[in-house]
Computed example of a mutant assay.
Amino acid sequence: MTLTAQGLREELAETIAAAGGPHDPAWLDAVAAVPRDSFLGTAFFRPTGTAWEPVHRDGLAPEDWLRLVYRDATLVTQVDGIDAAHATGSVSGSPTSSSTLPSLVVRMLELAGITEGHKVLEVGTGTGYSTALLSRRLGDAQVYSVEYDPGIAALAAERLHGAGCHPRLIVGDGLAGHPAGAEYDRIVATCALRSVPPPLLWQLTDTGSLTFALGGWMHASGLVSLTSADDADEDTATGRFTGETVSYMLARPHRPPPRPKFFRHAGQTRQTAMDPALTQSWTGRFVAQLAAPSAEMTTTGDGVTLVDTATGSQAWTEPHGDGWRVHQHGPLHLWDQVETGITAWQQAGAPGQEEFGMTVTGDGIQTVWIGEPSGPSWMLPA
Rank of each mutant, 00 (worst) to 15 (best):
G113D: 01
G113R: 01
I114L: 09
I114H: 06
T115Y: 09
E116S: 14
E116K: 15
E116R: 10
E116M: 12
E116L: 13
G117P: 08
G117H: 11
G117E: 11
G117V: 13
G117N: 12
H118N: 13
H118T: 12
H118D: 15
H118C: 12
H118R: 09
H118Q: 13
H118Y: 08
K119M: 11
V120C: 10
V120K: 05
V120W: 06
L121S: 12
L121I: 12
V123Q: 04
V123T: 04
V123K: 03
G124A: 09
G124N: 07
T125C: 03
G126T: 13
G126C: 12
G126D: 10
T127D: 07
T127F: 07
T127C: 07
G128W: 01
Y129G: 04
Y129K: 02
Y129I: 03
S130M: 08
S130N: 15
S130K: 04
A132S: 06
A132V: 01
A132R: 01
L133Y: 03
L134D: 01
L134E: 03
L134A: 07
S135F: 00
S135R: 00
S135G: 10
S135E: 01
R136V: 03
R136L: 04
R137V: 05
L138F: 03
G139K: 07
G139A: 09
A141K: 13
A141S: 15
A141D: 15
Q142V: 08
Q142P: 08
Q142M: 13
Q142C: 13
Q142T: 09
Q142W: 10
Q142L: 14
Q142S: 15
V143E: 00
Y144R: 04
S145F: 00
S145D: 02
V146T: 01
V146Y: 00
V146I: 03
V146W: 00
V146R: 00
E147M: 05
E147T: 05
E147C: 06
Y148N: 10
Y148D: 08
D149T: 12
P150R: 07
P150V: 08
G151V: 15
G151I: 15
I152G: 10
A153L: 12
A153H: 14
A153C: 14
A154E: 15
L155H: 13
L155F: 12
L155E: 15
L155A: 15
L155M: 14
L155N: 14
A156I: 04
A156K: 06
A156S: 10
A157L: 14
A157C: 14
A157I: 09
E158G: 11
R159I: 06
R159S: 09
R159L: 06
R159D: 04
L160Q: 08
L160V: 11
L160Y: 08
H161T: 15
G162A: 07
A163H: 05
A163S: 13
A163T: 03
C165T: 06
C165I: 04
C165L: 09
C165K: 05
C165D: 09
C165Q: 10
H166L: 05
H166S: 11
P167S: 01
P167V: 00
R168K: 11
R168Q: 06
L169I: 04
L169H: 01
L169G: 01
L169T: 01
I170F: 04
I170C: 06
I170Q: 04
V171D: 06
V171E: 12
V171M: 04
G172E: 09
G172D: 08
D173E: 08
D173W: 04
D173Y: 05
D173L: 08
D173S: 08
G174I: 03
G174L: 05
G174D: 05
G174Q: 05
G174N: 07
